[in-house]
Design a protein around this nucleic acid. Structure first.
Lengths: 132, 132
DNA sequence: TCATTCAAAGACTTTACATATCCATAATAT
DNA sequence: ATATTATGGATATGTAAAGTCTTTGAATGA
């Protein structure tokens, strides 16, 4: 299992939007070009972030995407869930009597990762002087 | 991203081998039947565990698979790494100046999950009376 | 020694999903 | 009006997971 490229695009795009002025939307052309991905494809990915309520899109000339929330409220986990979905990473399909004990361990492990991603915010990266 | 079904099969098979007598190997037919998977396919999966040195296979009549290590040394992470590989779950392909700050966060999150899976052992489930 | 029982391995198929591309449509600024 | 920009649907394409089939090789025991 691997995180999808779409998640990589989404995270990098969000970092750009967080560091950009919230007043001006950034066009998908610009966002796509800096990541070496086609604008139409990136647009599809960003639509998922729009539906998750994290960013908003402005059509027409000088349009593009911009944050629709406070920067500080945006965690890694929000973005990842918007792209990858919120389903558990491990599903035991067998019919045990009660809950599968293996699955219980796996879910606990997943929670550890999620907990870290929930604490991690994009703004924090900017403060450390990260290059987008 | 999801864990593969192969990981599910491997974990359940290992739990069976841990709970079985180490003297007698268990045939892949038996292991496969109890999980509703074809023997040839399960055999492919188990071969990876053999190569990882966790179990050993005995050919010929009364053959099968059995543990090749102490039960207590077998962690969830060992099994998962043997099946899914050890590559990082997240790879940023872009060329930043130095290491990608987003990737650093993702790797840290992954470590949290791995740390939990390294502590989790199959024997512990048996003591809790888990049904295989 | 010979048939039987078992795993290993290679070639192959099928399925599912990620990764796009293309085009028509709708919204908006100038 | 026209240029600019996102949206959505249809449609490839690529790749990995999931599974089958068949042959080979190793061990047992009669």
């Amino acid at each position: 299992m691997r995180f999808t490229k779409a998640t990589n695009y989404a995270l990098h795009t969000m970092l750009m939007l967080v560091s950009a002025s919230p007043a001006k939307p950034v066009s998908v052309q610009k966002l796509a070009e800096s990541q070496g991905v086609s604008p139409t494809y990136l647009s599809k990915i960003l639509t998922r972030l729009v539906k998750a309520g994290m960013i908003e899109s402005i059509s027409g000339a000088n349009g593009g995407y911009r944050l629709s929330r406070n920067k500080d409220d945006i965690t890694f986990l929000d973005i990842i869930h918007a792209i990858e979905g919120t389903a558990s990473l491990f599903e035991c399909n067998f019919v045990h009597g009660d809950e599968c004990s293996i699955q219980a361990v796996m879910k606990e492990a997943e929670k550890k990762m999620e907990s870290h991603l929930r604490k991690a915010k994009l703004v924090d990266l900017l403060q450390k002087g990260a290059n987008v």
